[in-house]
């Protein structure tokens, strides 16, 4: 099956910085594909190249089988884009934001109104058609951005940090809508720094750091490869005591950051039992499952890089 997006040695150089440094990826159709990374990792630049906002510096980039440099207009007419900053027209009503955008795709006005009403129902904003943008909450604005990206029935939907800045309820609602869209067969490409979001929505994740892809795989494979099933976090005196103990065979990986010791292991209960047998009762500890957060931090470091 042809990839929805295919990149080979894709590079973007600005005057002094190389934002994307030769990345390769293939996004299969009907998948949800996530780009994970800190700010400045090159995620947004990659998205902008896919949706033909900026030109690549070198490499290959095919979107829906078309070269992004040769066929921007055709590509734009078949994809939907939710940009990172809310970009809704404050001088228009909710309904006008949708109908006007639909006419940009050559839709007749009556068809545009019907489509807009259908989409407002989908994003649960039926009663808000005559509202102005300033009267919407952050979550409503983001859902409206998603609705606007759907006016042309795109095969491929690109979402640059779709839930950044939303409260938990707002985020959950966006996730539900994205899951429904995927169930309808759309290909989703999203960027996020929320591991939880990537783990829930994406079947495949690439982790970017400083313009490169540092690892990729399914969420569970990434956790298995770069963390472990469980994590035992110890702090204070317990951390110092445990650091001195030989725990080989049980602990796959130790990390220490800011006075907290992270023991990556396959079974927290077995590890705690071993510690108890050695006469050690940790005081302050957190026993939890490993998440993509651990993968991400192990790959890109816990220090703030900005």
């Amino acid at each position: 099956m042809e990839a929805a997006v295919l990149a080979r040695s894709l590079t973007k150089r600005y005057d002094v910085v190389e934002a994307v440094r030769g990345i390769d990826f293939a996004i299969p159709p009907h998948a949800c594909f996530g780009f994970l990374g800190v700010n400045g990792a090159g995620k947004t630049t990659t998205m902008k190249m896919i949706y033909c906002r900026i030109a690549r510096s070198s490499g290959e980039l095919l979107v829906l089988g078309m070269d992004a440099a040769q066929h921007p207009k055709e590509i734009k007419s078949r994809i939907g884009v939710v940009v990172q900053e809310t970009a809704l027209d404050p001088e228009l009503t909710v309904l006008e934001n949708l109908t006007l955008y639909a006419t940009f795709f050559g839709m007749r006005r009556s068809a545009a109104v019907a489509k807009a009403r259908e989409l407002l129902a989908f994003i649960s904003l039926e009663g808000k058609d005559r509202s102005r943008i300033r009267d919407l909450s952050g979550g409503m604005k983001r859902r409206l951005m998603i609705a606007r990206a759907l006016v042309n029935d795109p095969e491929l939907l690109i979402l640059d940090e779709p839930t950044t800045g939303l409260d938990p309820q707002g985020r959950l609602l966006v996730w539900e809508k994205l899951e429904q869209l995927q169930a309808r067969g759309k290909t989703l490409v999203l960027t996020t720094h929320y591991m939880e979001e990537a783990a829930r929505l994406c079947q495949w994740i690439v982790v970017m750091d400083e313009g490169r892809i540092v690892t990729e795989g399914s969420p569970t494979a990434l956790i298995d490869r770069h963390a472990a099933r469980d994590v035992l976090e110890l702090s204070g005196a317990s951390a110092q005591a445990a650091a001195a103990m030989p725990l080989d065979g049980l602990v796959r990986r130790r990390e220490e950051h800011g006075g907290t010791l992270y023991l990556y292991n396959e079974d927290n209960r077995a590890l705690l039992r071993r510690l108890a047998e050695a006469g050690f009762e940790p005081e302050a500890h957190v026993a939890r499952q490993a998440t993509l957060e651990d993968v991400f931090l192990n790959l890109t470091g816990r220090e703030l890089t900005e």
Binding site: R53, V83, A87, Y101
Partner: peptide, 14 residues
């Protein structure tokens, strides 16, 4: 502000 032109060129407006 508000990305009005940006939104237009994200759609197929030249």
């Amino acid at each position: 502000f508000n990305g009005v032109y940006e939104s237009m060129v994200t759609a197929p407006v030249q």
